[in-house]
Write a protein that binds this DNA or RNA. Sequence first.
DNA 1: TCTCCTCTTGACTGAGTGATCAAGAATAAT
DNA 2: ATTATTCTTGATCACTCAGTCAAGAGGAGA
Lengths: 212, 212
Amino acid sequence: MNKAKPADALKTRIQNLNHTLIMDGALDVFSSYGYRGSTVDQIALRCNMTKPNLLYYFKHKEDIYRAVLERTLSQWLAPLEALDSESEPIEELTRYISRKLDLAFESPKSSRLFANEILHGAPHITDFLKGSLRQLVEAKAAVIQQWCNRGKINPVDPVHLIFAIWSVTQHYADFSVQVEALLSGKLATHSNREATRNAVLEILLRGLKTAP
Amino acid sequence: MNKAKPADALKTRIQNLNHTLIMDGALDVFSSYGYRGSTVDQIALRCNMTKPNLLYYFKHKEDIYRAVLERTLSQWLAPLEALDSESEPIEELTRYISRKLDLAFESPKSSRLFANEILHGAPHITDFLKGSLRQLVEAKAAVIQQWCNRGKINPVDPVHLIFAIWSVTQHYADFSVQVEALLSGKLATHSNREATRNAVLEILLRGLKTAP
DNA sequence: TCTCCTCTTGACTGAGTGATCAAGAATAAT
DNA sequence: ATTATTCTTGATCACTCAGTCAAGAGGAGA
């Protein structure tokens, strides 16, 4: 008995089931309407639950939001963490950009949730921005700087390059309404996503390739 | 008497004064908290007005929002409209990117208002996206395509290039909280904005320059 | 089966919010 | 100065919404 458990341990089968059910529904709603624009009733409805039942699992609306937001942060960090200084820079950046684009296409809701949080001043994740994200960016900027110093890519400001990669890739998730209005909804098909990938890779990387 | 006037003509001195006062305050509030996150009281307070007084000038909260949003759209279109097919492409794109960056630094609130609207599905401006914006983008994409065909810049997908320019430049307004967290607030000073401008121009344009 | 604990829900509360209105204050016109 | 119009505001309404509560339904272990 008395097993050590994390503070937020979920004890029962039903708790596990409903927690993930709620987080999924909440991601849907929050990413569509923002925090204030979403109602607990709305989330509950999406989960086929009553509001008091949902509030039995998460005491406050904000608790749901934080839980969903934190789940997306790790997803968000992972691709950059994978950037490896040992591999060939162009290959490595291609992989990174490609992975970010995949995320934008496959999890646009997560991207929009994150974007909305930043857009409104990141009130829930300033610690994240100034802490783990900043550390990670500094480390990876150093990697890129090293590539420049060794002449493996053309000189570039590493942090602004990271910003450019983030903004361009996330644009296809966050601004998808605009993108699809201007591309006649072409983004939905696989082949057009490949065209987008190639275009983005060309735009971001061609200037970095050193003359042969 | 009976002078012909636009439907929304403002008759009196006080009307003109308060209309712009309200629109400025509303831009502040809406861009910070989003549509649903903002209250009429909040906007009224920012204008040193009472709520009923504000609602004397704009009957509904949504009327204020639409007015502010529409004011930003023209501001948003102008730089792209100025893209000239006759000039040198790199010069012209440099000017365009530079102008967009200036807007991001000088009017981040407008940028965020626009971003928020798109992020949540652009419910108020689908006509704009599928209409005038789309026309303009098609026209300017043709210009860029012409430059490619004539060998003045390296081949590139024109629409995706426009997306890249938009996303990278607006990133410095929309995600300024994140940018400043990662740059230690460096963005505020003039010299660091110049560094940003140079970095962005290099990243976006170096790949387009043809080998001499 | 009996019992304890978990889960579910209808009804409710209180705070907040968009909008209205009538009455009074300020301004402009003659 | 008188009058008509525009402007301002306290009070209030109808409604939405996060969160509560008590009572009951369901599940798990003995």
